[in-house]
């Protein structure tokens, strides 16, 4: 794996009043890596991710994403990343083409670039017949694949995927992961949260957050060896058992 650091996090902390949601976490993510960011509900994952994508200011500590400081250069961070989540993906009442144009514009692409990217994307995803149909008419799995491609429109160095595959059938889920692999192969870094523990095993490395801290960080293989269990699910249960 490439050892060039694309995300660096040092003692990153976020407090809400007297509650410490993220408690001095530190880690690095490398270029071209698929990095799994796991944790129980309420462990602080979303808060940490919000700081990394530049929409929430850390209380203390530092983080850089694609070389930019999340505190002082948040706008540059936003320009260098792609973001996709199951909850927020595409506008249902716009057509597929309109969605691509809209997000292309948001990401600052020129008209010519948008035109070229739209044609390319529609061809790659085989959406020629439905390009002028409303997004809401697409099956969920297609929406998610399209939404991932849209997050890549501006060729970001890092893409944040926040529970990208909830409720998707197993075949589509795998096709989605193949897209993730392919993208990592091109050198893009993927930062992924998921509740599917088998998906955690597709990651190069995973971190597990428990009550605001990172309790474990390693490759799935090493974690399973360390905790002497057969699956990431068991690793997770061992680490997070004392929650709630």
């Amino acid at each position: 794996m490439n050892q060039e650091k694309i995300i660096t996090v040092n003692n990153l902390t976020k407090e809400f009043g007297s509650f410490t949601a993220v408690n001095s976490i530190s880690f690095d993510v490398y270029k071209g890596e698929i990095f799994g960011f796991l944790g129980a509900n309420g462990a602080g994952k979303t808060t940490a991710m919000k700081m990394l994508i530049g929409i929430s200011k850390p209380t203390s500590g530092e983080a850089t994403v694609a070389g930019f400081d999340v505190k002082t250069q948040a706008e540059m961070v936003k320009k260098s990343i792609g973001y996709m989540s199951q909850k927020f993906s595409m506008y249902d009442d716009l057509t597929i083409k309109e969605n691509i144009t809209f997000f292309g514009g948001i990401y600052g692409l020129s008209r010519a670039q948008i035109k070229e990217k739209t044609a390319q994307l529609i061809q790659e995803l085989n959406l020629q017949d439905v390009a002028d149909k409303l997004v809401k008419s697409l099956p969920q799995g297609w929406k998610q694949k399209l939404s991932f491609s849209v997050a890549l429109l501006h060729e970001p160095k890092i893409v944040f995927l926040d529970e990208p595959t909830g409720g998707v059938d197993p075949i589509t889920r795998r096709q989605f992961w193949e897209m993730i692999y392919a993208e990592a192969h091109k050198g893009t870094t993927l930062f992924v949260t998921t509740h599917y523990m088998d998906e955690a095993e597709y990651c190069d490395r995973v971190s597990i957050m428990v009550e605001g801290k990172i309790e474990a960080l390693d490759s799935p293989k090493n974690l399973k060896q360390k905790y002497n269990v057969d699956s990431m699910n068991d690793v997770f249960l061992k680490l997070a058992r004392n929650i709630e």
């Binding site: 129980a40 509900n41 909830g166 509740h195 699910n233 997770f236 997070a240 058992r241 929650i243």
Partner: peptide, 13 residues
């Protein structure tokens, strides 16, 4: 109906 969707593995168990 999908009582465990979006719920972490510990709570699911």
């Amino acid at each position: 109906d999908e009582p465990t969707t979006g719920v972490d593995p510990v709570s699911r168990k």
